[in-house]
Each structure stands twice: as C-alpha cells, then as structure tokens.
Amino acid sequence: MKKMMLATAVLALTAGASLAQDVVRIGTEGAYEPYNYIDQATGELTGYEIELGNELCKRAELKCEFVQNAWDSIIPNLQSGNYDLIMAGMSITDERDQVIDFTQNYIPPASSAYVALSADVNVGEGAVVAAQTGTIQAGYVAESGATLLEFATPDETVAAVRNGEADAVFADKDYLAPIAADSNGELVVLANEVQLGGGVGIGLRETDTELKDKLNVAIQSMKDDGTLNTMIKKWFGEEAQTF
C-alpha cells in the first residue's frame, strides 16, 4: 500500500553514515533523455544528472534524493522550498540567474541544433520551427524570424517534424542527436549549430550559499580528476563536448 502512495518516483542514496541528517531534495523533470529520464525497464529515474547528482552528494557528504516535477513549475517549486536543487538540464541564463542561483556548470555550453526531414531545409524567415515551451531555444526561435510552434513536451516537438507540422525542431543537440541517429535517415541534424546559455548548472535558491559552495567544490573536484568528463562521455557519447 505504501508503494502505491508513492506517487513521486524517488531515488534515495545515502552517503556515509546516515545520521538524522537533512535530506537535500533534487528536483528533476524525468523526461529528457539522456539528462534525466525514466528507465524503461525498472520505471525509476535515471540518466546523466541522476548519476552525477548522487556522486556530487557523496563527495559533498550530503544525503540526497531526487523528486520529479513538471518543467513548467520547476522554478516556483524550488523557490517555495519543495526541493532544494534543480538538476534538469537547465541552462544557465541571465533571465534565470536573476531569480535563482546556479553552481558552476557541469555540462559545457552546449550546442543547440535543428533537426529536419532533409539537410537543406530553411529554418530562418518563413520557416515553421518547433520548440518546447519555456526553453531558451523557444526564445531564440521567436527572435530568429522563423515562426515558433510551441509544444509542452520535447517528444511532441520531434513528432511535429515527423508529421510535417513543423519544418524543423530546435533543441539541445545532445537530446536530438540520438533521435536522429535512430531514425534510419528520416531525420537529419542540420549543420548550423547555435551556442546558447552558459552551460548546464545546478539551480538553487539565492540564499543557500553554503550549499552552493559545497556543490561548487564537489563539481570542481570531479572536473579536476577527470571523472566528470568520463561521465559525460558515458552518457552523451565519445564526441560530446567535455571540459
């Protein structure tokens, strides 16, 4: 019965001795492969950020658990104190930096890419480009002169290209590349990549400076000993950008 009540999928990982220590709760979306997603076989949260989050917590000697939250309300719920960190493939942008704080990035400034049905599709003026609502990519398309077609979830944006609703989809290249690779040539990644944002970092409340310092140290230690790069390659492939 308890299992049934467990509506929120939770991955708990204890680090060190489990005293009656505060649990640091990490909010994630759970729908952005390979950053964070639901493992198809077990039904539990998995992905680069889950593995990284657990490792960082171990190094910072924190007790952490992941909670899933819809992308729409992921920042208001952080500010309301429903969890303490966000690890959801969230790019560091000025807009977000005004209301929340970020640690140093744990993914280098990533390329955003267009995916379309053929390589010579126009994505500028006059084109219809799909993007997920509320992402930096959506903001970019709105300003690029192309017609923005917004969907609530990332898969719908890809589906829109497949069914011809949109000429192209614009999203993180790391998200699109495996989908294109899997499509038997139906979908292609266009050559014009765009650099947006300052990489992906952990989002936290502006007042949580102590937590921020701890995590910054942990991220730095992973950058220094090369484990971060190994982890990036494990999840994003050999060609992925590393530090």
Binding site: L148, E150, A160
Partner: peptide, 10 residues
C-alpha cells in the same frame, strides 16, 4: 493550448 494544440507564432 494547454494540452491540445500547439501555439502558432506565440
């Protein structure tokens, strides 16, 4: 627009 149809040109 919330869960049905995509928003076109915002």
């Amino acid at each position: 627009f919330f869960s049905g149809f995509p928003a076109f040109q915002q």
